[in-house]
């Protein structure tokens, strides 16, 4: 799905033009909003942030080499999820409850005890687990303003757009059926004239 190899799927956006001194500000913003790993001892289930295109563990880029002659900046949004699947958690909680009840010489634990046990087991499992890691590639052409997000997931696109605007302080516009027209040189007057048309029917021949 990404740009690096194989077939490519993506969504298109256009960003506000960049201004003088952009490179330093971009690298600083990327570092400030870099990906931070989830602490398994915390209760955080999801984390996201920017990482380098060539290194999923670093959000640091040298401004001097940020923009190649093509104007294409490549980077990635890393999204980690550390959540124990409900069925896995239930199996481990059941096992722990049986062991504790046996130890205490009881048939079963009380509801409140089970709730506490569930939290304990969840903590233990989180420490033993690795997060699910998702890397979404981004190509931003700072000459044309075009931003390509290499996913077609609407949820990822929303997260990306929010994070992009917050990090880089540049408005981002999704490119769809209407937005593409001015980008390809159609005058606003021509675009406005579309308001006069309605959906066509091709299957009826009128005499």
């Amino acid at each position: 799905m990404g740009i690096a190899s194989g077939s490519v799927s993506y969504l298109r956006f256009v960003a506000e033009p960049v201004t003088e001194g952009f490179e330093e500000r971009f690298c600083e913003a990327m570092y400030n909003h870099r990906f931070m790993e989830i602490d398994p001892r915390s209760e955080v289930e999801k984390a996201h942030g920017w990482v380098r295109f060539d290194d999923a563990f670093s959000g640091e880029i040298d401004p001097a080499v940020l923009v190649p002659p093509s104007g294409q900046i490549l980077f990635r949004l890393r999204v980690d999820t550390l959540k124990i699947p409900a069925s896995t958690l239930k199996a481990y909680v059941d096992q722990a409850a049986r062991e504790r009840a046996k130890r205490d010489g009881r048939d079963q634990l009380a509801r409140k005890e089970l709730d506490v046990l569930k939290l304990e087991v969840n903590k233990q499992l989180r420490v033993r687990s690795l997060p699910r890691l998702q890397l979404i590639e981004i190509a931003w052409n700072i000459h044309s303003g075009e931003v390509r997000l290499f996913t077609t997931s609407k949820g990822s696109a929303t997260l990306f757009a929010e994070t992009f605007e917050k990090s880089f302080e540049r408005k981002l516009q999704y490119v769809g059926l209407l937005e593409v027209l001015p980008l390809r040189g159609m005058a606003q007057e021509e675009i406005d004239s579309l308001s006069l048309i309605d959906a066509e029917r091709f299957h009826l021949i009128e005499n």
């Binding site: 077939s7 799927s9 077609t152 490119v175 059926l177």
Partner: peptide, 15 residues
Amino acid sequence: VNLDAETLALSNAKL
């Protein structure tokens, strides 16, 4: 390439 009429999104593009 796959083209979606609703969004004009390009997917599964073989370059």
